[in-house]
Amino acid sequence: MPHDHAIQCVHEPYLVVLSYLVSVLGSFTALQLAVAIPAATSVAQRMRAIVAAGAAMGGGAIWAMHFIAMLACNMDVPVAYDIGLTALSAVIGMVSCMFGLAIAGSGVFGWGKLVFAGVFMGLGVTGMHYSGMAAMLMPADTHYDMTLVAASGAIAVVASIVALWLAFNLRGAMQMFGSALVMGVAVCGMHYTGMAAASFVPNGAGDTVLAGGMSGDYLGMSIFVVTTAVLAGMLVTGLVRQRQRQLVEI
């Protein structure tokens, strides 16, 4: 339900675009790394592939996108972030993606397993988003439209099912890139639907509520720089290993 005195969130268009591009890069990197999961010849190799692909998807395509998109939201009150909850949201995002990949990629690939893994992963992504929202420190109370919260969760589940299907059924670089573009739209759709579900009402607490938190601008830009560098390194590694596998098969 809207509030008459709710604080308005005005999004910076260039940061919205940047959040989408980060999500696309994370998605493409995750798809490249996921190729190694079914190709693994040992449990250790399979676990490394799952961790790498899950970290790229959960940490890059979803979590980093989330906080850059939060930076895009300009409000008339100062905002900081609780470091513990911010870190927890990152863990939730990455672990849920790792488990989703592990479930969907175990044994014979099937739709029942895919849907189960997608629901698990989608709920984890939703938990990442709202724990990230809970990390916000500001002199305002957050209220949610539960219909839009449910819609954001549904988008996360559908996006997760699609992402997992793509991860185990695509091989060509152009197919993966096109799919990453679609995944970026889905991830952003989930985030901005979740943001639309929230309204922020001033509570008169003052700036003392920001004590102990990290500046939103500093956090967002730090996440962007570190995530982009890590994803670029992971992507190059994934491309090199895929090329090596192709040469061995020839």
Rank of each mutant, 00 (worst) to 15 (best):
H3Q: 12
H5E: 14
C9M: 15
V10N: 15
H11C: 01
P13W: 01
Y20W: 13
L21K: 07
V22C: 02
V24H: 06
V24E: 07
A30W: 03
A30H: 02
P38Y: 06
T41M: 04
T41D: 12
M47C: 01
R48V: 03
I50Y: 05
M57W: 05
G58K: 03
H66L: 06
H66Y: 08
H66F: 01
F67H: 03
I68S: 06
I68E: 08
I68H: 06
Y81R: 07
D82E: 12
I83W: 10
L85M: 15
A87W: 07
G93C: 10
L101K: 08
A102C: 09
G107E: 02
K113W: 03
F116I: 10
A117L: 01
F120T: 05
G127M: 05
M128G: 11
S131L: 15
G132L: 00
M136L: 12
L137G: 06
P139S: 15
T147R: 10
V149D: 07
V158W: 11
A159I: 02
L170Y: 02
L170M: 09
R171C: 08
A173N: 11
M174P: 01
G178Y: 00
S179W: 04
L181H: 01
V185A: 13
A196N: 11
A198R: 03
F200W: 14
G213S: 09
A229T: 10
L231T: 09
G233E: 14
V236A: 10
G238Q: 11
L239P: 04
R241K: 11
R243V: 07
Q244G: 00
R245F: 10
E249F: 00
I250Q: 13
